[in-house]
Computed example of a mutant assay.
Amino acid sequence: MTNVTVITGGSRGIGAATARRLAHTGQHIAIGYRRDHTAADTVVADLRATGVRAIAVPADTRDPDQVTALFDAAAELGTLTGLVNNAGITSPIGPFTDLDPDDLRRVIDVNLLGYVLCAQQAARRMTDGAAIVNLSSVAATLGSPGEYVHYAAVKAATDALTIGLAKELAPRGIRVNAVAPGIIRTDIHALSGQPDRPDRAASRIPLGRPGEPDEVAAAVTWLLSPDASYTTGAILRVGGGL
């Protein structure tokens, strides 16, 4: 059987790091991405260099038709055994009272609606032994006061989605878990208007530094692997102590 994993937001950051790790385990990969064709092509080239099959599919995960197209394309590679729900955005950091409703809607649509639509497609196609990993955040329990409370609330919803879906899909032998990263060196911070946030926040992280994408990818890869065969409904915190 040819095992295939779909990774949304796979052209950069944690998604790209996870794709590269999974390729070294022999997984064939379909990455979804929004805009950066060059970055997506670079990741696919790296994956193919390991000997696996890989494709990049432009897909807005807020759109049910584009999500279906992503999973249909992945099916051309083989049997769907993994989904990494990783595509995500933040909005400008600031007080809750200044939150723009358009920013709120985008955060909800990408980080929650997108996860639901992708998990739904995966659940329809997966069979015994498959696994889903949702990317949550330590913000889900810390709340992110003064920064992005709405983002934290959506990530708390991600945790609830993970737990509920794990219980619903367990009888079919499909595992569902989440990884909750802390402050990681990715370009998501530039979207919030503070590209230097990881280094500025280092002093409040117990381990004294921000994390790297590959450190999160390692946790995701484990949860997708047979080594985690009895783990479902878990939220694995990878936050340096946060």
Rank of each mutant, 00 (worst) to 15 (best):
Val6Ile: 13
Ile7Pro: 00
Thr8Ser: 04
Gly10Leu: 02
Ile14Cys: 06
Ile14Glu: 03
Ala17Phe: 05
Ala17Leu: 11
Thr18Ser: 02
Thr18Cys: 02
Ala19Ser: 12
Arg20Asp: 11
His24Ile: 02
Gly26Cys: 07
Gln27Ser: 13
Gln27Val: 13
Ala30Thr: 10
Tyr33Asp: 04
Arg35Gln: 08
Asp36Ser: 09
Thr38Ala: 12
Ala40Gln: 07
Ala40Asn: 04
Asp41Ala: 05
Thr42His: 10
Val44Tyr: 06
Leu47Phe: 00
Arg48Ala: 08
Thr50Ile: 08
Val52Thr: 15
Arg53Ser: 15
Ala54Glu: 08
Ala54Leu: 09
Ile55Gln: 09
Ile55Lys: 09
Pro58His: 12
Asp60Val: 12
Arg62Asp: 07
Asp63Met: 10
Pro64Ser: 11
Asp65Leu: 14
Val67Ile: 09
Thr68Ala: 14
Thr68Leu: 06
Ala69Ser: 12
Leu70Val: 01
Phe71Gly: 02
Phe71Val: 05
Asp72Phe: 03
Ala73Tyr: 04
Ala74Gly: 11
Ala75Trp: 05
Glu76Lys: 09
Glu76His: 10
Thr81Glu: 00
Thr81Asn: 00
Val84Trp: 01
Val84Tyr: 00
Val84Phe: 03
Asn85Leu: 07
Asn86Trp: 09
Ser91Pro: 06
Ser91Trp: 10
Pro92Val: 06
Ile93Trp: 13
Ile93Phe: 15
Ile93Gln: 09
Gly94Arg: 11
Gly94Glu: 10
Asp98Pro: 03
Leu99Ala: 11
Asp100Val: 09
Asp103Glu: 15
Leu104Tyr: 15
Leu104Thr: 11
Leu112Ala: 06
Leu112Trp: 08
Leu112Ser: 07
Gly114Lys: 05
Gly114Ser: 06
Tyr115Met: 10
Ala119Tyr: 10
Ala123Asn: 13
Met126Glu: 04
Met126Arg: 03
Thr127Ile: 03
Thr127Trp: 00
Ala131His: 04
Val133Leu: 07
Val133Cys: 03
Asn134Pro: 00
Leu135Trp: 05
Ser136Pro: 07
Ser137Cys: 05
Val138Phe: 03
Val138Gly: 02
Ala139Tyr: 09
Ala139His: 08
Thr141Asn: 11
Leu142Gly: 06
Gly143Ile: 07
Pro145Leu: 07
Tyr148Lys: 09
His150Pro: 04
